[in-house]
Design a binder for these strands. Structure first.
Length: 118
DNA sequence: TTGCTGACCGACG
DNA sequence: CCGTCGGCCAGCA
């Protein structure tokens, strides 16, 4: 117990990510960097993506398909069990996806830092 | 325990 | 314009 027990049980960096991802409204998307920045670890955008990789361990479904890289490219589409799955999911929400890239990405971009504000 | 990897981002030449 | 490199943190062999 060297660590401070006063901290939250969900000290897991991952759960924080999941929580934010679940807060992404319908028809909106965000980026790894935006989430990382909101968490205060802007340089650790990789961890956000890594958390998504572990998201499959979570019983709750995490809308990871709403999370893309900074250019709106579906980098993790291969991890959904199918390359078209992510695209289909996004299109299902009214998001236009073209060549594995989100069309009008800036329009559907949901910034947690601005919305959740901290 | 140590070391490597990873669904990224930004800077540099 | 394009390719390359470093940094960040946590999980796993």
């Amino acid at each position: 117990m060297k660590k401070d027990p006063a901290e939250k049980n969900e000290g897991s960096f991952f759960e924080k990510v999941y929580k934010i991802v679940r807060r992404i409204p319908y028809g909106r998307v965000t980026t790894y960097g935006a989430i990382a920045e909101y968490l205060g670890t802007r340089g650790s955008a990789r961890m956000v993506g890594w958390a998504m990789n572990s998201s499959h361990t979570e019983t709750s479904r995490v809308p990871a398909h709403r999370v893309v890289n900074r250019v709106g490219l579906l980098t993790g589409k291969h991890h959904f069990g199918g390359q078209n799955v992510m695209k289909q999911l996004l299109e299902s929400e009214g998001i236009e996806v073209e060549d594995d890239q989100i069309a009008g990405f800036e329009k559907v971009f949901w910034n947690p830092r601005k919305e959740l504000r901290k």
